[in-house]
Amino acid sequence: MTEPILKVNSVTKCFGGLTAVDDVSFSVEKGEIVGLIGPNGAGKTTLFNVISGYYAPTKGSVVFQGNDISGKPPYHLAGVGIGRTFQVVKPFAGLTVLENVTIASFLKHPKKADAERHAWQVLETTGLADRAHLSAAGLTLAGRKRLEISKALALDPSFLLLDEVVAGLNPTEADRTVELIMKLKAQGLTILIVEHIMRVIMNISDRLVVLNFGKKIAEGTPAEVSSDPHVVQAYFGEEAA
């Protein structure tokens, strides 16, 4: 077996007295889609922020492609191939959709004309090309989530962190996003995804990591995890388990 692309080694993240992520370890193999699930407040987004460099871990380390990246700033991680989206979307509201994506394209295409050309290609992949000249502020929620993905993709990442890109979309929009994610996987991208919608996460993930109160309570294929008593207990309470 080859070296995993991402290794999370006993990562702990505390905010004052609160331990948001508690001694979590797992790894992601190249080409996999790994789903990160758990009830609200389980620490999923905090863990995402640790992996993408927004927080330094209190303890433990994050290893990406063999290099320790814990505590490295996000703009450095973007450079080594980690792209991420935000659960609370962060469009550059005063700029057009094309400009939003072009800014991300600058990472690999320093010339403006090249970056714009690259941004167009990304927008065609994600289906936003027809809205390229609109202001990002004018997009619907579905559009803005798509813009998040477009910006992350424009970095030409090898590893993609998707934070709730499906939640809040209607079923048709959700299906289109799932289709897009599967297309990206087929292109060889490795993906770590946080998602609340079980229908989606169970279908697209190769493996799942389940968090509850900051601790990892289960890991395995969707089938294994969904029958795990700890997981059922975390989601449905004592009696159901």
Binding site: G79, I103, F106
Partner: peptide, 20 residues
């Protein structure tokens, strides 16, 4: 590209970090 990068900072500094 410099001008567009500055505008990204103006619009959302945290979001800009994720884009390198």
């Amino acid at each position: 590209p410099f001008g567009l990068k500055l505008k990204a900072i103006r619009e959302d500094e945290e979001g800009a970090k994720a884009l390198g």
